[in-house]
Design a protein around this nucleic acid. Structure first.
Length: 477
RNA sequence: CCGGGUGUAGCGCAGUUGGUAGCGCGCCUGCUUUGGGAGCAGGAUGCCGCUGGUUCAAGUCCAGUCACUCGGACCA
């Protein structure tokens, strides 16, 4: 009976993965809808996860010498139009401000979809000498893109993100920055979010508007679709030329600097959910869970129970865990279900039976395993279990990724992979026409040209021409 | 943007040929409970998505519009 009631609340993930996702995001209290399409409210629990991600990244950015700044939210149309590819890519999804009060503006202003143009304009003013370089900036903000199809966390018209922007004296230095930041993102995913990644370069078709090269980390979700979880772009000196950003170099010659940008958004939270979640709701990796341990007192009105529960909470808090104890009037069963929905990695139950025997019961969220542990070893056991949970969540996700990438040497093999679900790895001639054909015939887009290449054959299975490199293909979010 | 589905209490839903707005859960108060969504008693809660039309009368019929949702196209 209890079980039936529980599953009624969220759609079965195997029956309808998209609906399951929407249910979890709403019922776990991460987001709420606003009255405007594509604009979402990030509720306290959702924001707390984002803050944890922010803290990890912000610390790394600063260690690597970046400075946080704040740019304007509006971009004059003339500024946006300075770089041709960039404006072509973004103009179709810009929102425009045309009125100030009741007065029509002399020039319409775009609500930033990304801030390259603002950084470039600023740099064209403040950069003078090679001694000023590099300039390594980052901003935490939200951006607007007028998407047609919107989904909570995965594709909003407004979303929170960080955008890093740097300029460098040499191309080599800028390229190195691009790679460094991609690796920062990969570490965030793998070491903190327990999400294994494939690192690679985007094809020309998929790269950022105005970039010379775009690098990406691609993750596989539980439904075997791809989620781009972070990108890092190398711009060469294209923007610098378009915006006339120059500096005097070591030989006193005027030169253009080389530029990068990189970003991670709240979309990555959608990735956490679709990587680790199950039919009971969210499953959060201990490293970023706002609450790592919840303590549930059982028969809490019996003498000594609440005191003991509070004692455990205080000990764990003192040991540095993010812990809460729920002494509300709800039944234990209700609390179990509630905190499973919220994805709290570890639950500790403490009742009269345990107290008498000097034990507590620990239950893992990731696999439901129960363990009876001695109260004396509370801190060590909690630490051990959280580490185990973090590691086994990563292993499980890793297995999902590696077991669902299949090589294909013919179009039929590629189609068969997609029917069963997964990523295709296949040789490619480098022609955009073959990418378009893959989309038309197989329904996939190129996810990346992975850094770790394999040789699967000599020809491109789409056109039969000589192959240049191996590409990962998949259905993307 | 195209196609399907949905908007009635916080949530899930019922509401017949148009005729005073309903149920379950949750919420509030009190007592009893507590090892997988507790029990009893009492109580509160409605712009029936919004705008207009038809009608003596609209949750119900008509038109438009907004939002949610699923799929597709599009998408750094």
């Amino acid at each position: 009976m209890a079980k039936e009631k529980k599953v009624q609340q969220i759609t079965d993930m195997d029956a309808d993965f998209a609906q399951w996702f929407t249910d979890v995001v709403v019922k776990a209290g991460l987001i709420d809808y606003s009255g405007v399409k594509g604009f979402y409210i990030l509720r306290p629990y959702g924001y707390a996860i984002w803050e944890n991600i922010q803290a990890i990244l912000d610390k790394r950015f600063k260690e690597l010498g970046h400075h946080n700044v704040s740019m304007p939210v509006l971009i004059p149309e003339s500024l946006l139009q300075k770089e041709k590819d960039h404006v072509e890519g973004f103009a179709p999804e810009c929102a425009w401000v045309t009125l100030g009060g009741n007065e029509e503006l002399p020039e319409r202003l775009c609500v930033r979809p990304t801030s390259e143009t603002l950084f470039c304009d600023h740099w064209s003013h403040v950069l003078h000498s090679w001694r000023d370089l590099p300039m390594k900036y980052n901003q935490w903000c939200s951006v607007l893109r007028w998407e047609k199809t919107t989904r909570p966390l995965l594709r909003g018209r407004e979303f929170l993100w960080q955008e890093g922007h740097t300029i460098h004296e040499t191309a080599e230095e800028a390229k190195e920055e691009t790679e460094t930041m991609l690796n920062v993102y990969a570490e965030l995913c793998e070491d903190y979010l327990a999400m294994p990644v494939i690192k690679g370069r985007k094809t020309d078709k998929e790269k950022f508007a105005g970039a010379e090269a775009t690098y990406t980390i691609e993750c596989m979700m539980h439904d075997k679709k791809a989620l781009q979880s972070g990108t890092s772009h190398y711009f060469g000196d294209g923007f610098a030329r378009a915006f006339n950003i120059t500096f005097s170099d070591r030989e006193n010659k005027l030169r253009y600097p080389h530029q990068t940008s990189w970003g991670v958004s709240t979309r990555i939270m959608g990735g956490i959910i679709m990587t680790h979640g199950d039919n009971n709701g969210l499953v959060l990796p201990p490293m970023i869970a706002p609450t790592q341990i919840v303590i549930i007192p059982v028969a809490m009105h019996k003498p000594g129970v609440l005191d003991k529960a509070e004692e455990l909470r205080a000990r764990l808090e003192k040991a540095g865990f993010r812990v809460m104890m729920d002494d509300s009037d709800q039944s234990p069963g209700w609390k179990f279900a509630e905190y499973e929905m919220k994805g709290i990695p570890l639950r500790i139950e403490i009742g009269p039976r345990d107290i008498e025997s000097g034990n507590f019961v620990a239950v893992r969220r990731d696999n439901g395993e129960k363990a009876v542990c001695a109260i004396d070893q509370l801190e060590e056991k909690a630490d051990e279990l959280l580490k185990t949970i973090q590691a086994s969540m990563y292993e499980k996700a890793k297995a999902n990724l590696t077991e669902n990438i299949y090589p294909a040497t013919t179009m039929d093999e590629a189609k068969a992979v997609i029917e069963k679900g997964g990523f295709i790895k296949m040789m490619w001639c480098g022609d955009e026409a073959c990418e378009i054909k893959m989309k038309e015939d197989v329904g996939v887009s190129s996810r990346c040209i992975p850094f770790e290449q394999e040789h699967l054959g000599d020809v491109c299975p789409v056109c039969g021409k000589p192959a240049k490199e191996m590409v990962i293909w998949g259905i993307a979010y």
